Simulated scan of single mutants.
Amino acid sequence: MKDTLPALGRHAQLVQVRRITLSPGSTTGWHYHHGPLLVVVSQGVLTHTFARDLSTETVQAGQAFVEAPGPEHGHIGNNLGTTPLVMYAVYFLPSPTSPLSEPTPPPGL
């Protein structure tokens, strides 16, 4: 991890931190990011599905992960649990005008 974290911000011109809360049954919608993200789940369970192969991963409270940038890394996050999901996302944006995320159609459409 020592070498990974500094690389996240290597090309960032702006860094933003957001607290994201998804109520039970909610979703982020299919999307991708222009820069990498560091995400920490602080409460609940995130079910993360990837557009490239529809594989999923489950991320528990206390776990963190990095999301790669670009449309080829489209994904959706779901709260399939019965309690709110709370995440902290650190966005490493390539430009001050970059959106935090870009919607993308679900796979196969």
Rank of each mutant, 00 (worst) to 15 (best):
T27M: 05
S42D: 10
T47S: 11
A64H: 10
G74R: 08
F65A: 07
G29D: 06
F92G: 01
L93H: 04
Y91W: 00
T28Y: 03
G77T: 10
Y91T: 07
L109P: 15
G35P: 00
G29E: 04
S23M: 15
G74C: 05
T97C: 06
T4F: 12
H34R: 13
P71K: 11
G77S: 03
G29C: 02
A61K: 02
H73N: 14
H73D: 01
G9L: 03
Y88C: 10
V90D: 07
G81K: 01
A12P: 05
L93W: 00
P105W: 06
Q16D: 11
V39G: 05
L37M: 11
S95N: 12
P103H: 08
T97W: 09
H75D: 01
P6F: 06
A89L: 02
L5M: 13
V17S: 14
P99W: 06
Y91C: 05
V17T: 15
G108F: 09
E72L: 08
S95A: 15
A64E: 10
T82E: 15
F92A: 06
H75V: 02
Q60S: 12
P36V: 07
P96V: 10
V39E: 07
E102I: 12
V41N: 04
H75W: 01
H75N: 04
G29S: 00
P94M: 09
T56H: 07
G81V: 07
P107M: 09
V90C: 14
P105Q: 04
L38V: 06
Q13L: 13
T47H: 14
H34Y: 11
P103M: 06
P105N: 03
P106D: 09
P84L: 06
W30F: 07
W30S: 06
H11G: 11
Q60A: 12
G77F: 07
